[in-house]
Design a protein around this nucleic acid. Structure first.
Lengths: 299, 299
DNA sequence: TAATTCCATGCGCCATGCGCATAGACTTTA
DNA sequence: TAAAGTCTATGCGCATGGCGCATGGAATTA
């Protein structure tokens, strides 16, 4: 007779050894004595060997039982620790999350979220890959990242997007610029001043272009910067003004700048979580999204 | 839902990974596709997590599945190798046998039996503890030896004895002794010559005393030797004659001795296997007994 | 649009595992 | 010496779970 051994079988065997009695082992295992007795018999039948030499008064391991003893101990321990380990992962207490994010998110939202998350999940590593909107989406599509933190992408069948917060566009000028005094400021202002643009592949540029279109003005970019730091320094140097979402301001790295809300149109850059549809998130990643949402809500 | 995971569950999980398909995995596992599908679902329900992101066209591990993968591999391997190991033991190809035996058996029967046994069972170690009849029986009673090779002991409830061979008593004298010419020789001969006896605790002494009683003669031992080598040398020196079972002759260690069958009564010392009742022998030990029996039969 | 290929699900069957009651063996106690 | 007590084994019936068969439903291909 060939049965499929389970850790349960082995645990029962070990309980008999530990207690030195079928009845006591049955109590310990939460079974009736007949059930336990038959489980031992089933193992013995499967092995073709007795495990215990037993009478009503005596119970001893047979040589085969003695041989199985350490094996059973090892297997049960292995099983338990393996599933404990897995349970840690499922509980979100262990794992690795790869987050692809826009530089601005990396600079502002992510650090706070990671700090809050790691406080509760010290066993989870969070890896960051920063990049522009296109590369974030590619990382998600290609499976190189679990989560993307980016602007709303063009709708695509296998991408799922959930907005976390709206980052408002505003004018960025020198603090001593007269514009810094009036608020709010219409986008039309860029028709009268030098505009320092971001690089055409950036998500900010796509939105400023759209705003100009909506405001009905034609703006000729004076510079096209790949990095916000460059943009900030150009503005600080008095070479022109620009429009940036509020959260990107710290990335300009320049002092003496003012940010004032822009209207007509009032424009917000949606920042959110990008995932791949049909791909289950790890428990840790799901919980990280929740932390992100609460951090974004309190921002 | 909490199920009892078995290596079978894990093997099915691994088969799906290996084949990249539920249907192919089902074939590989000798199951129907629905059965396999439900087994995976059962694991997923138990863990509260999907293991595969699957459509009819695509199958991918989820993070939890990826986490379980190496764990499952390890556990299945552990289980297999553990039971392979146990199977070796049960087949009698691995193990350790402790044999307690009389010196004469150690010298004559055991070496041949061990040689024959080890040729077929290179993985089994055979340990020998030699001692007189009493200590052999004690070793069995006390569980310090698996098998005893000794004379038939006094019947005792927990000892089981099985005769392997009958070792015939004969006269031992110098080869140039006139007695060496006549055969068979009656025990009464010891009434007319100096008798060199074995020590009172030895099994041989018990039998020679009984023979004298049966032959109706009174014999006064000249010496009482603990070792057969001493006895042999005393005989060789011409100090007397003695009676020994045939198989003990090589242990006398003396040259120039003759052995002639004794009659009136003709006496045989039974040599056999002593075991403890109610104590299962290891598979290797059982097989060793079989080898002993066949070696004894051909002796 | 039809055919094909997968995975999921409804259904019924049967083996397995369980508890209850009790038998049987052995020891202890009166 | 007999009765009581303790421990494992077994008969029995029930519920659960695992399985195969048939089929549904979704995605892809011809």
């Amino acid at each position: 007779m060939r049965i499929d051994f389970t850790p349960h079988h082995l645990a029962i065997f070990l309980a008999v050894i530990r207690t030195g009695s079928f009845s006591r082992a049955a109590v310990e295992c939460g079974l009736s004595q007949p059930a336990l007795s038959r489980t031992i018999q089933a193992i013995e039948d499967a092995l073709g060997q007795r495990l215990f030499d037993r009478t009503t008064r005596h119970l001893d391991l047979t040589p085969t039982g003695r041989e199985l003893h350490p094996i059973a101990e090892r297997l049960v321990t292995e099983f338990d620790s393996a599933f404990d380990e897995l349970a840690e992962f499922i509980a979100g207490r262990r794992g690795r999350i790869v987050v692809a994010a826009l530089p601005s998110v990396c600079a502002v939202l992510l650090p706070r979220a990671i700090a809050a998350f790691r406080a509760d999940h010290p066993g989870v590593d969070v890896l960051i890959r920063d990049g522009l909107a296109g590369s974030v989406a590619d990382a998600i599509t290609g499976g190189r990242a679990d989560l993307g933190l980016t602007v709303r992408p063009l709708p695509e069948a296998h991408l799922s997007y959930r907005t976390l917060l709206a980052d408002e566009f505003g004018l960025v000028c020198r603090a001593d610029d007269p514009l810094a005094g009036s608020t709010p400021i219409p986008w039309a202002v860029f028709g009268t001043r030098n505009f320092i643009a971001m690089h055409p592949t950036s998500s900010v540029r796509a939105m400023t272009d759209a705003a100009f279109l909506q405001a009905g003005i034609a703006v000729r970019p004076l510079y096209e910067c790949a990095f916000l730091g460059t943009t900030g320094n150009l503005v600080a140097a008095g070479l022109g003004i620009t429009a940036l979402p509020r959260l990107t301001l710290p990335l300009t790295g320049a002092g003496g700048l003012a940010w004032r809300p822009l209207v007509e149109p009032s424009l917000q850059r949606a920042l959110g979580v990008l995932t791949r549809v049909g791909r289950t998130l790890s428990p840790a990643a799901s919980q990280f999204v929740a932390v992100l949402a609460s951090v974004a809500a309190s921002a």
